[in-house]
Design a protein around this nucleic acid. Structure first.
Lengths: 246, 246
DNA sequence: GCGTGCGAAATGTGATCACACAATGCCCGA
DNA sequence: TCGGGCATTGTGTGATCACATTTCGCACGC
């Protein structure tokens, strides 16, 4: 990828970084990978202790994540991992279906030989991983494929918004991964997208992506249980349990 | 407006609020109204002194604005009011043209009599203000009209993104105001939008907005000078002035 | 006696400040 | 024009304050 290093999923290299940046990245990673789950409360002190730093850098990092909508803030100021509801997921997907194809269209004129060389292996990696049943790796390949294109769109504002959306969707990854694996994987059109881009048909590639996002959304809505989706049986079981949490 | 108070342009009531919130709102207001201009550097200490608070709340507020893309951060960490380039403005407008009509479509089913009562005066206020040549008031009425609808879309994530975009566009307001005033005002289709919404044609209203945004963008691109748009004469005058700023 | 409520104390948590440290950039003088 | 010193600015720490929540215990009622 000729562009700068992926700013979304930074690798290690946490040596010389300011502590705030370190805290921010670690929290973001935890969010995206599902290490912390929806509903979890992140108190400044607790996180600071976990990271062995003082409250300030953590506070800044937490607020930054909140400003990016990756965390919610209780009225008291405590940060919580947002629970994605069915409506929230629908909204998120609808926005993605508008912005990400737009990024593909914008990127198309900027793509060239070096990009094909970088993108093609990612499609192959996805297929291989899915065939092997490793949904996490397949997802990672997909993600790298898409962001490889998005970064080429030369649209920093748009890229930032898309990253925000992915971050917000992060906590859902775990369940989606399970579901998708169980379902044998969603159709993925990245190979066709790449072909369209090679032929210079940016809008066609964008349309493929839009359809893919909408299909995937439909599939997830049909199979994944969301926060607040308690079944009748669960609601009944819930009644009369005064001491429950969450 | 039946919804909660406008969170984008808060009025006064800065008594019981945390200082960080106060600093945040005042900075945002300054940004949106053009009180601080693109390129201005906002040092934590300077702002803290201006607001008569210590550095901490200001620091948090500045970082929050930066996370929302309303401010840029120099590598050193100093916050600066972003300069909107021609390309940046084009990108911003393209995103708005996708998201804001979407919000209108989503809001349509939720609108009812109370909304018409609240929105109609805003259209009238716009017309009156424009007739009187008061572009600032006309803009404010437009803004309230649109956000009144957006808030009804029941899409918090989308609303947040749109607010971010407006915030980012804020520093440009001053020049746009001048230009638009000089040009006699852009066509505005809010009356027609309101009519379409009343008839339950949400998509039609959305389309009107999309066209309006695109027209306005075109007009602004054609008339407003952007950062980096130096004319030939200016570029010539620039040569050989080693000590220049900005 | 057992269950239920209410209230106060204890705890947790965020907000803010003043201070110390280090990196950055600027300005002045050679 | 180049170098060095100094002012500015961001980063991070620890203590302290006020507020919110939770928890525990006691008293009341069944």
């Amino acid at each position: 990828m000729p562009e700068a290093a992926n700013s979304f999923f930074p690798q290690d290299g946490e040596e010389g970084l300011p502590l705030e940046e370190m805290a921010y990245r670690r929290l973001r990673e935890a969010l995206v990978t599902g290490a912390i789950l929806p509903g979890d409360r992140l108190s400044i002190r607790a996180v600071a202790a976990a990271f062995s730093v003082s409250a300030m850098p953590v506070r800044t990092a937490l607020r930054r994540l909140a400003a990016e909508q990756a965390l919610d803030l209780l009225p008291s100021g405590t940060a919580v991992v947002p629970r994605l509801t069915r409506a929230g997921f629908t909204e998120l997907s609808a926005i993605r279906a508008k912005l990400e194809p737009m990024a593909v269209s914008l990127a198309a004129p900027h793509l060239g030989e070096p990009h094909w060389k970088a993108l093609a292996p990612l499609v192959a990696a996805h297929d291989a991983a899915r065939a092997a049943g490793d949904a996490a790796v397949a997802q990672a390949a997909d993600r790298d494929f898409l962001f490889g294109i998005y970064r080429s769109a030369q649209a920093p504002l748009l890229l930032g918004l898309i990253e925000t959306l992915w971050l917000r969707r992060g906590p859902l990854f775990r369940s989606v991964r399970i579901t998708v694996t169980a379902a044998g994987g969603l159709r993925h059109s990245h190979g066709a997208m790449l072909e369209a881009l090679r032929r210079g048909m940016g809008d066609e590639a964008a349309e493929l992506l839009r359809v893919e996002i909408e299909d995937a959304t439909r599939a997830i809505l049909a199979t994944v249980r969301f926060e607040g989706d308690d079944t009748a049986a669960e609601r009944l079981a819930w009644i009369g349990k005064p001491g429950r949490r969450r």
